[in-house]
Design a binder for these strands. Sequence first.
RNA 1: CGGGAUGUAGCGCAGCUUGGUAGCGCACCUCGCUUGGGACGAGGGGGUCGCAGGUUCAAAUCCUGUCAUCCCGACCA
Length: 570
Amino acid sequence: MKMSKLFVQTLRDFPQDAEAMSHKLLVRAGYIKKLANGIYTYLPLMNRVISKIEQITREELNKAGAQELSMPFVQPAELWKRSGRWGAYGKELLRMKDRHDVELCLGPTHEEVITSVVDGIVTSYRQLPLNLYQFQLKFRDEIRPRFGLLRSREFIMKDGYSFHGSQESLDEEYQNMWRAYKRIFERCGLETKAVQSDSGAIGGKVSHEFMVLTETQTGEDDVFYCKHCDYSANSNHCTSILNDEITTTRFDKEELIDTPNVKTIKDLAEFLKVSENNILKSVLYIADSKPVMVMIRGDKEVEETKLLNVLCANEIRPATDDEVLEYTCCVPGFVTCFGLENKIKILYDKSIAGMKNFVTGANIKDKHKVGVNFKSDLNFVDVSLSKAGEKCPVCGQPLFVTRGIEVGNIFQLGTKYSEPMNVCYTDEKGENKPFIMGCYGIGITRTASAAIEKHHDEYGIIWPLAIAPYHCVVVPVNIQEPDQKEAAYTIYEKLQKNGVEVVLDDRDDRAGVKFKDSDLIGFPFRITVGKAIKEGKVEFKMRSSKEFDVITIEEAIKRVTEEVLKLNED
RNA sequence: CGGGAUGUAGCGCAGCUUGGUAGCGCACCUCGCUUGGGACGAGGGGGUCGCAGGUUCAAAUCCUGUCAUCCCGACCA
């Protein structure tokens, strides 16, 4: 490809409305162009990156025994009604009607479709296990798309689904996919950590997310991990053990005391000279229109995904001040569970276990109780957000926290779809059984973004060779110089013959322009043809390094070709 | 959905307070000059000022509505 013909426009400045570095660079280097909020055109450079990531994914999945197919993007509502998700999925599902008033939606995921595809084709246990996957556009009407391709509404995903006749078979395939995922991301130049996670709207019990750890704000999830063992988990799934802290106070008798206008935990702790973990906090939620009070230690926060799961609710939200008054007959800030046991549902978070002589509300305005103890044994649940420094549930060592970008996930779905949709096979005994299913996703466009988040510098993108849009750029410093021009063309053609994906920067521009562009776009290798061509020498430079070597044309071609050939050995 | 902000040329912005011929930088076209890290000079093309109403002799500017976008929060495989 000649640079003069390449459909790309680099910008001198970073776009003003971009926050994440990958977003800024993708726009500035001419990879994407926004059409609408969260909807982007993938320009030729981006398209090539996407193809590379898809191809690596395809190779590894095929090697792992999966088969590629392609399912429709537009899906009928009827399918979603059969699985029960038409009502449950929420507003991320973009719904519409066709000219006959038939309800349709844009596919945010394909569990329903794949289940109906398999229906009638796979009828016997002899056909199992089976693993099918596709690369497909997804549309999720996100509340707030942001960070460019890291959270867009329209995106490309590899989604795969497996079908089994036993849990053992699913376990095996789950491990198989786990290994394939590790290889895929490794080949894409990304180190990932598989963390336990909540399975959310997809459903199922066991699930892991493959996270690229970032430590910048661009990662959207908090990941807890242990340095001493393998444990790691998303914040919505982390079950840390609390440290042994002071759990009692100097108040050894239960007493009602005046606390005028002391509403927050922080103020209360200061007012009474106790620590926040001596206070029993009451938080009122509305779960599917019903009130639920969560009792939790004062220094802890409620993890709403955990709460949602414990309640088996579809939707939860914190109660408004008016609702607190309605259900507890007390203004927020002075509420407690005592006396409300028979009125509303109360959950006791495990963080309050062992609290003695604690402080809590009195259900009376401007009053709290001190020296309180629970009279009977409680059933504890885990609905609190973990904190860095709390103990690993596996080995007891302190946990650390970092930010992460979720680039892939694997779920054990079980019969969540096959059962309600009544899609079955016949087993060895001639009985009809719903399929046991697994589901495996990789965000292709998000993976590209994550790669940029991890691999860039102040000048631009530094693509891992395997997913770069082109391997190499050849830059004649001055295309007007016949020697340079001729040599550049020769190198360009030889590299092409060797199977190297190469761009010749044949533009009649100053060298600075070409260097800036090649750094910005991120070609892994650059061969510069300058004055040294009179001695038959060129410069060989890697994007990832500041240094360059002055070597012969032949040597430069050899180095690039060898590196590219190494890729194919993977 | 709540809070904040912004819509003026492909991109980045000024002009709006105090209404009176729509501007600047980059990009683009022509010519010259230049060619090792985003040169320079001269000339040129391109804008329903987000959209719709209203006030006014006159609206990018004032008023009302509306749409879109961005940031924070809530929320989210």
